[in-house]
Simulated assay, not measured.
Amino acid sequence: MLERTRGKNATEVTFLLPADHPHGQVSVVGDFNDWTPGAHPLAPREDGMRSVSVTIPAETRVRFRYLAEDGLWFDELEADGHDGTNGYLHT
C-alpha cells in the first residue's frame, strides 16, 4: 500500500506492508536510494503494519521494488505502473 503527501516541491511517499507478510526484514529500493538494499527498511507500526517514508522531488518518476530476506524481490500492486521489471511512481 502507498500513502502520498504532496508538497509544493516534493512528495512524501510512505510504503506500507502487513507486519507478517512477507516474513522477516523488508526494504524498499529504487532510484531514490541508488538501489541500495537496507537503505530504507520498513519498521513496525502500532497498527499492525510496517512502513518507511521517502521524500521524492516533485515532478519525478522513480522506479522501485521491495526486497525481502533471502533475496525475494516483489512489486507494489498500487504503483502507478510497471515497466516489466519494476514498479514506478510519478510525483
Rank of each mutant, 00 (worst) to 15 (best):
Leu16Cys: 04
Ala43Thr: 12
Ala10Leu: 12
Asp20His: 13
Ala43Arg: 09
Val54Asn: 10
Ala68Met: 03
Thr14Asp: 06
Gly81Trp: 12
Trp73Gly: 05
His40Val: 05
Thr60Ser: 14
Ser51Val: 00
Asn86Tyr: 15
Asp70Trp: 09
Thr11Gln: 04
Thr55Pro: 00
Pro57Ser: 06
Ser27His: 02
Pro57Ile: 08
Thr60Asn: 09
Leu77Asp: 13
Gly38Lys: 01
Val54Cys: 06
Ala10Asn: 11
Leu67Met: 08
Gly24Phe: 13
Leu17Gly: 08
Ala39Trp: 03
Asn86Gly: 04
Thr55Phe: 00
Arg45Met: 02
Val62Arg: 11
Thr91Trp: 08
Glu78Met: 07
Trp73Cys: 08
His82Thr: 07
Glu3Ala: 15
Ala10Phe: 13
Arg61Leu: 09
Leu16Trp: 12
Glu69Gln: 14
Pro18Asn: 11
Asp80Tyr: 05
Arg65Ser: 08
Val62Ser: 11
His23Trp: 13
Pro44Trp: 01
Arg65Asp: 14
Gly38Pro: 00
Val54Gly: 11
Gly87Ile: 01
Pro18Trp: 07
Glu76Pro: 02
Glu76Val: 01
Arg63Cys: 04
Leu2Asn: 07
Val52Cys: 03
Gly71Phe: 11
Ala39Gln: 04
Tyr88Asn: 03
Gly81Leu: 01
Arg63Glu: 11
Arg45Cys: 03
Arg6Lys: 10
His82Lys: 09
Ala68Ser: 11
Arg45Lys: 04
Gly30Tyr: 05
Trp35Arg: 06
Glu69Cys: 05
Asp34Leu: 07
Thr85Ala: 08
Gly24Met: 14
Phe74Cys: 05
Pro18Ala: 12
Ile56Met: 06
Trp35Pro: 03
Pro37Ser: 05
Met1Ile: 08
Gly7Trp: 03
Leu67Thr: 03
Asp34Val: 05
Arg50Asn: 04
Asp31Pro: 11
Asp31Trp: 05
Arg63Leu: 05
Pro37His: 04
Tyr88Ala: 08
Pro57Lys: 11
Glu69Asp: 14
His23Gly: 14
Phe74Lys: 00
Tyr88Glu: 04
Gly30Cys: 09
Asp34Met: 04
Arg50Val: 02
Glu46Ser: 09
Phe15Met: 13
Leu17Val: 06
Gly30Arg: 08
Asp80Trp: 09
Gly48Lys: 01
Glu59His: 14
